[in-house]
Design a protein around this nucleic acid. Structure first.
Length: 649
RNA sequence: GCCGACGUAGCUCAGGGGUAGAGCGUUUCCUUGGUAAGGAAGAGGUCACGGGUUCAAUUCCCGUCGUUGGCUCCA
């Protein structure tokens, strides 16, 4: 007999060799039906793996993250089998589960696969699923495993197996299909009730662009048809929040082939929005002790040679600008830091004057790979809400905390409450990759981690992700489709102060090297607006939205009154417009709704007589007739309730 | 940069070897209206660009540019 401990702490005695699924059946028949994966002593096991020792057992269903992963991993086996049946001779490589579904990387040899082929693949996969084939794991010796895949002329699997230890190699069989597999499967293919191939894409073998390019087939599957329908519906909804679509509809920005790819053009409404965001941050920064500076869009090549950026990125970026003078070269500014270093260098500093905080909305240009450009989130010309803080080592801790405060203020004021933070530190294995003393690194990493803890942030520490010049803290936000984007960033830098020979005079009358903090709470105006659009679906916070109220005269004879209302709005600092077109009120309301304006002020005979406006909120709520003053108060209160001043949050 | 898909009116999209269509928008006229589309008429396209095949190409093929889903990259 063996003792099995369940997550609720209960220990139950079972005969040796009992399987997780049988344990589940012992608890309830319903659980047994829903169990799709299990962990025994914190190791992934099959639901039919006999348990031979005492241990703790966790059972997972579709509702658990682990259950979903197992479900999708198993589905990728089914996908692989379907592909092999439809395209004989193809070579399978790897096929993991991902956050939303799974993929399989396949060398299709002479075949090509496109969207047209999806229905056939799905049909074949469902055919396999309905066969209710069990997944059976078996151990295979390294020699046997190698010879199996050598027979199949699958060099990819051979390569994988060569990197595995003999004795830990397992194959998984189901139906007529066999795959190299670590394990962790659903009981049988039959619980896959819905199967969808989502798209195909190119992917390099082992992520290396010098190796063969494979075809990655993405899919998703569900235990109920209804869940697939819901998922597809969700994707449709996400498409409606795509910032590229909303940006066009709301006339915020555009792109022009003539201007060039990745170079956004901000339309009047978008520019107004951007300006408001900038003002918002400028106000907070002023309070936090920043000083605005301005630097040019180009700089001598020598500047970037000094900073080290030219050596690292010069070849792969916009090429130097030449002048009639021989050997004179300028580069488009790819970052603001070198300029700010020279601003610091304009005069000597005493430790009493530090920290110096130089801020600039600086437009930079980077030659991103054409395939990587994406709406406003990845562009070739963009404006960073950049600032560089020059401080003493002793001040680093405090400065870092204050930058976190500012970053969190920005995110919460704009409704990004589900950001994640990533602390990137050194890889302890490769100390030679980093510059700066070990002591300074340790101090900086500790400062970041302590600050993040103190602010009770939801963060993870990722070793090896630090820049060579210092550790950093990034704020990540997901877009409508769940893709993660980095917005704000705070980076400690020991490199540039060295390269630009930045100094200050300490209390000991000696010359010291300051530490530099790079920081950008928005990240860039472009990416921030993009993510803000996807988050709000275009319904911006009232304080930020380009037009807060549309005044709708019922007919031509009310236009004069509408203009008068507009004047009062302007006096109350409410951004309003009059829609004086010869259209029906119904039509004007519809269009104003579609433009997502927060308020509509309808003015007709009644309002004219009583000196009021009839207020309709976006979405349809009728707030009735009220005086202009009352409406103005309403707007002010609403703004004050969402937008706090910095350090009053 | 690589692999796949796509590119038709300002926008959203249909069509298809014999030089094009809808809805919305726009213009003009009628209508002067009360909380999500009032009516009528008109204008608007070298079917992304460049080659090729063909009697004939917007349609088929190739290339370029752009967009897009991934990959690689990301200061």
């Amino acid at each position: 007999m063996i003792h099995i401990t369940l997550p609720d702490g209960k220990t139950v005695t079972y005969p040796k060799g009992i399987t997780p699924i049988e344990v589940a059946r012992g608890i309830s028949e319903g659980l047994a039906r829903n169990v799709i994966s299990a962990r025994f002593n914190n190791r992934k096991v099959e639901t039919v793996t006999p348990l031979e020792t005492d241990g703790s057992l966790v059972l997972y269903t579709w509702n658990d993250e682990e259950g979903k992963k197992t479900f999708w991993h198993s589905s990728s086996h089914v996908l692989a089998q379907a592909l092999e049946m439809l395209y004989p001779g193809i070579k399978l490589t790897i096929g993991p589960a991902i956050d939303n579904g799974f993929y399989y990387d396949v060398d299709f040899m002479d075949h090509t696969v496109s969207e047209k082929d999806f229905p056939a693949i799905e049909q074949k996969a469902m055919e396999i699923a309905r066969g209710k084939h069990e997944f059976k794991m078996r151990e295979v010796s390294k020699a046997d495993a190698l010879s199996y895949y050598e027979d199949h002329e699958n060099q990819y699997k051979v390569e994988l197996i060569e990197n595995l230890e003999d004795g830990e190699i397992t194959f998984c069989d189901h139906d007529t299909f066999t795959d190299l597999c670590r394990g962790g499967h659903i009981p049988n293919t039959g619980i896959i009730k819905a199967f969808k191939v989502l798209n195909v894409a190119g992917a390099y073998w082992r992520g290396d662009e010098n190796r063969p390019q494979l075809t990655r087939v993405y899919g998703i599957s569900f235990p109920k048809q209804k869940e697939l329908t819901n998922y597809l519906h969700l994707l449709e909804e996400a498409k409606k929040r795509d910032h590229r679509k909303l940006g066009k509809e709301l006339e915020l920005f555009t792109f022009s082939q003539k201007v060039g790819q990745g170079l956004p053009l901000w339309l009047p409404k978008g520019a107004a929005l951007r300006e408001r965001l900038e003002d918002f941050l400028k106000k907070a920064q002023k309070k936090a002790g920043y000083e605005m500076v301005v630097s040019p869009h180009i700089g001598q090549k020598e500047l970037y040679v000094t900073s080290g950026h030219y050596a690292k990125y010069g070849e792969d970026s916009f090429q130097p600008i030449h002048t009639p003078k021989q050997d004179e070269e300028f580069l488009l500014k790819p970052m603001n830091c070198p300029h700010h270093c020279e601003i610091y260098n304009a005069r000597p500093y005493s430790y009493r004057e530090l920290p110096k905080r130089f801020a600039e909305f600086g437009t930079v240009y980077r030659y991103e790979q054409s395939g990587e450009l994406h709406g406003l989130t990845r562009v070739r010309g963009f404006t960073q809400d950049d600032a560089h803080i020059f401080c003493t080592h002793e001040q680093l801790d405090q400065e870092f905390k204050e930058v976190i405060d500012l970053s969190l203020y920005v995110l919460t004021s704009l409704g990004f409450d589900n950001y994640t933070a990533q602390v990137s530190v050194r890889d302890p294995e490769t100390p030679e990759k980093y510059i700066g003393s070990v002591e300074n690194w340790e101090r900086a990493e500790a400062a970041i981690i302590n600050a993040a803890r103190e602010k009770e942030m939801n963060f993870e520490i990722v070793p090896g992700e630090a820049a060579f010049y210092g550790p950093k803290l990034d704020f990540m936000v997901k877009d409508a489709l769940g893709r993660k984007w980095q917005l704000g960033t705070i980076q400690v830098d020991y490199n540039l102060p060295e390269r630009f020979d930045l100094t200050y005079k300490g209390s000991d009358n000696e010359t010291h090297r300051p530490v530099m903090i790079h920081r950008a709470p928005f990240g860039s105006m472009e990416r921030f607006v993009a993510l803000l659009l996807e988050h709000t679906g275009g319904n911006f916070p009232l304080w930020l939205t380009p037009v807060q109220a549309m005044i709708l005269p019922v007919s031509e004879k009310h236009e004069k009154y509408a203009q008068k209302v507009l004047k009062s709005m302007e006096n109350c600092e409410i951004r309003a417009l009059v829609d004086a077109r010869s259209e029906t009120v119904g039509k004007k309301i519809r269009e104003t709704e579609m433009q997502k304006l927060p308020f509509m002020l309808i003015v007709g005979d009644q309002e004219m007589d009583q000196g009021t406006v009839s207020v309709r909120r976006h979405g349809g709520e009728d707030l009735g007739a009220q005086s202009v003053e009352a409406f103005s108060d309403l707007v002010k209160n609403e703004i004050n309730s969402t937008l706090k001043r910095f350090k009053e949050v």
